[in-house]
Design a protein around this nucleic acid. Structure first.
Lengths: 142, 142
DNA sequence: ACCATATTTCGCGTGGTGACGAAATGATGT
DNA sequence: ACATCATTTCGTCACCACGCGAAATATGGT
């Protein structure tokens, strides 16, 4: 499909205008990731993450690749996207949430995908604790 | 208010993710404009344009200034915005809609604001014709 | 003071977005 | 063939964005 520069720019910015999608892009900066890893870090339902990825693909910002049981996602290498993404990453570099994501990711990369998925994409269950909510902490003691 | 880099970036992109707002920004590139001029070119209800301007102000992309009966809008000079806007303008430079807007604007700048507003912000009524819909053309003859 | 008028605010209808869980899909491994 | 399991699609719900016209606000002219 052919779109005017205006509407394709609008589509790009629409895709960027959501925290979860920005976090995903920031994580992909470090290289290709499995969808299950994104689910684990962003902590949204698989169906929700999937929808966000559809949006990012529609905007031409990411591409995916099926490898066996898993789907791997990476930043698109189109010139169009590249430029926008660079400016995105500059502002995001010192965001606390993004930094936390990258820290978790560093640990997560050492966990086999099979282990992660068998744990239901739960970070806690693969030994990565206290990253986002320090614990469920049902309201009771400190 | 203080926002994290992530959420302020999201807010910025949300503000950019609408054709009318992008067109407004592209027009402001050429310098300060009266709200009534924006209404005339974009052809949306005054209340709608006003709402879009509120959005752009919230995102820190534009500032306004009241001069007598009229409100003048200009691009914000914050460093944050400046950088994003430049990349926006590059992609928008050869968009047909944006180019048409700028052409209309060139003519509009020679029309006094009082004349424009007394014409109900109608381009046709100030002698600028055939820019967007070649004519109402109620469906009947060619 | 009063009227005209440029812009904003308000209220409302309509359509789209984002969340989820349940069900479908498609590839693996037994 | 069949069971398993990662991911997507679908249906649903709540909410927000965006359009408008009517009413409110504020400024200038008479």
């Amino acid at each position: 499909m052919m779109f005017s520069p205006l509407s394709s720019a609008v589509n790009t910015y629409k895709a960027l205008a959501h925290p979860a999608r920005m976090r995903i892009l920031a994580m992909l900066r470090g290289g290709e990731l499995c969808v299950c890893q994104l689910i684990a870090v962003v902590r949204l339902a698989p169906s929700t993450i999937s929808a966000h990825l559809v949006e990012l693909k529609r905007a031409g910002l990411v591409e995916d690749r099926k490898e066996g049981k898993w789907v791997h996602v990476r930043l698109a290498d189109g010139v169009d996207a590249q430029e926008v993404l660079e400016s995105v990453f500059l502002t995001l570099a010192d965001d606390p949430q993004v930094k936390a994501d990258l820290a978790v990711l560093k640990m997560l990369r050492r966990v086999e995908l099979a282990v992660l998925t068998r744990a239901g994409m739960s970070l806690e269950r693969v030994g990565i604790t206290g990253c986002c909510p320090p614990a469920p902490a049902k309201r009771g003691r400190a």
